[in-house]
Each structure stands twice: as structure tokens, then as C-alpha cells.
């Protein structure tokens, strides 16, 4: 992997984001009712509308508006929210930090659970443990997160009363209560991830255990745990990394639903509120940030892949 590759890859990410920015800007332009109508409400007089359009530059050609917006984005100015009248960037950043905490905990939990489960199922292939893990994964994959979330609230908050049903407490304010509030949302998101990834780990590991080089390692007289760890697992984890990176895309989508159900003011909820209020600058910034997150996650996955498999040469 060369510096040139890193540079080119970063360039590609920027290019992707540029395309995304065109799409995002384009879509918000197609929406019925422009920023002026939204600001003034439906009862505004045509004179008022014309005045504010003039002030906001809405009469300029569309590419001028786009370039003005893009120029702002590049310099860190995402505009002001039409709903609150405050700058977009700090709001997005704060919402994103909450969502990232939720996502990081979910992905962390997924790694802690999915790897051992997948390995166990692969090593005990065809035995009861394998069947149990497979069955649980199927259930996990088949349940949409709004079902699991609702069930979880019903059972753990309503019936048992162990956990708070909804709400968000900042980590800095009260760490214990903050984590308590995060348990159900994190569990909801990781359930599908664990199900998905553990199945992937299982099938990849089963394949790896049947390769010639694993056979060769066994016939070299290495103990089974060394064969498993050094020879099979390493190769089985490679495709899993790609899957995890793709799952980040799922998390970004799933988080919107989960944040809405558990009333967590993260990026997902911010986006929903923005869409409901036609808060154009907020929608644009939110969509762009999500696309960037996805690009970066896949980039990191590629780097991890190359570090584990030396056959991959980026350059």
C-alpha cells in the first residue's frame, strides 16, 4: 500500500461526496415549495416572498446557488437551520456525536458476540450448538428493528421495569444513567448485526477449515487451536471485514428508526425532524454527513483488509 494509493483513495472519496452533494442539492431543489415559502408560511404575500427570495439569492441560476452552498460547506458553513435559525454545523455535530456513540457501542457489542458465536457454530458444525446459533440468527435477521425495539420496550421497560423505555442522557452528565438509557437501543441495533455477522463468520470459517492449507497445517501436526487461530480464522475474517463495513450502511439506516423509537436526539432523528419541517440546509448537511461516514467506513475496511492479507496490493 503506497502513499499514492492513500492519496488516490482520498481523492475518490472526495469525488463521491461531490457527486452526493450534487444529488442532495438537486433533490432539495425539486421539492415543492422553496425556502421562502417555508420561512414565511402559506399566508405570505407575493411581495414578501419576492423580497426574501431576493435576499436569499433564490433568483440566481441554480448552479450559482449550488456553488455558493458548496463553497459554504467546504469552509465549514452549512448555513442556518430554517427551523431554529441557528447554524447547522454545531447541531449536526452534536447529533452525530450521539449517534456515533450509539453506533460504536452497537458495533463493539456485535464484534464481541458475533465472532465467538460464528466460530463456535463453525467448529461444532451440524451439532446442536450450531443449529441453535443458526436458528437465533435467522430470527434476528427476520425481525425488523422497529419490532424488536417495541418488543424490548414492552418487556424490559413496561413489564419488568428494569430499564428506562426512552430518552437520552448525555454521557458527560450522568454516565451510569446515560448507559442505562443506551442499553435497549444498542441491543436492538446489534441484534441484527450479530445475526448477520455471525452467520458470515460461520460460513467463511467452514470454508476455510476445508482448504488445502488448513489440511496441510493439521498434517504438519499443529494442535487444533493453532490451526484454527493462525490458519483458518485469519482467512475467514477477511470477507467478514467487508461485510462489517457494508453493515455500517445498515446501521446508518437502522439508526434513524431506532433513534426515533427511543427518542434519542441523534443524526437520524435530526434528519427526520428536518424532513418534516422542510429544513433544507439541515437535510443537505445530514445527508452529506451520512454519505461521508459510509465512505470512510469502507475506506477503513479496505485498509484493514490489506493489512491482514498481503496479497492485496493497492497502488
Amino acid at each position: 500500500m503506497s502513499g499514492r494509493y492513500l492519496l488516490r483513495r482520498t481523492g475518490l472519496i472526495l469525488y463521491t461526496l461531490l457527486v452526493v452533494s450534487v444529488l442532495v442539492f438537486g433533490i432539495t431543489q425539486v421539492l415543492p415549495a422553496d425556502a421562502a415559502t417555508m420561512l414565511l408560511g402559506e399566508n405570505a404575500t407575493p411581495e414578501q416572498l419576492a423580497a426574501i427570495r431576493e435576499r436569499l439569492g433564490l433568483n440566481d441560476p441554480i448552479w450559482t446557488q449550488y456553488l455558493r452552498w458548496l463553497g459554504g460547506v467546504v469552509t465549514g458553513d452549512f448555513g442556518t437551520s430554517m427551523r431554529t435559525g441557528l447554524p447547522v454545523l454545531p447541531q449536526i455535530a452534536e447529533a452525530l456525536s450521539r449517534s456515533l456513540l450509539l453506533a460504536a457501542l452497537s458495533i463493539g457489542l456485535m464484534l464481541v458476540l458475533a465472532l465467538p458465536l460464528g466460530i463456535l457454530a463453525a467448529v461444532r458444525r451440524g451439532r446442536p450448538v450450531d443449529l441453535l446459533v443458526s436458528l437465533a440468527s435467522y430470527v434476528g435477521i427476520s425481525l425488523p428493528e422497529f419490532v424488536t425495539a417495541t418488543l424490548a420496550i414492552l418487556v424490559f421497560a413496561d413489564w419488568l421495569g428494569w430499564l428506562p423505555p426512552t430518552g437520552y442522557v448525555p454521557l458527560t452528565e450522568d454516565p451510569a444513567r446515560s448507559l442505562l438509557h443506551l442499553i435497549l437501543p444498542v441491543a436492538t441495533i446489534s441484534l441484527i448485526l450479530v445475526a448477520h455477522v455471525s452467520r458470515m463468520v460461520r460460513s467463511e470459517l467452514v470454508d476455510a477449515l476445508h482448504t488445502d492449507y488448513v489440511r496441510a497445517a493439521r498434517l504438519k501436526g499443529l494442535p487444533e487451536r493453532v490451526v484454527l487461530r493462525r490458519h483458518a480464522l485469519r482467512n475467514a475474517l477477511l470477507p467478514t471485514i467487508t461485510i462489517v463495513a457494508l453493515d455500517v450502511g445498515y446501521v446508518l439506516g437502522g439508526i434513524i428508526v431506532v433513534e426515533e423509537i427511543f427518542a434519542i436526539p441523534g443524526i437520524g432523528r435530526t434528519l427526520i425532524v428536518a424532513v418534516q419541517n422542510r429544513d433544507l440546509p439541515m437535510i443537505q448537511a445530514g445527508a452529506l454527513v451520512m454519505a461521508a461516514t459510509y465512505c470512510i467506513a469502507n475506506f477503513l475496511a479496505d485498509l484493514a483488509y490489506a493489512a491482514l492479507d498481503r496479497r492485496i496490493q493497492y497502488g
Partner: peptide, 17 residues
Amino acid sequence: STSLNPTLTLGRQITEV
């Protein structure tokens, strides 16, 4: 080409033995 592990160095595959 299939009996050697693609992700380990050639040296490692003999030193482990």
C-alpha cells in the same frame, strides 16, 4: 499454491513446525 496459507509468510509456515 493451495497447500500454503496465503496470509502467512513462507518462513512462518516452517518455523511453526
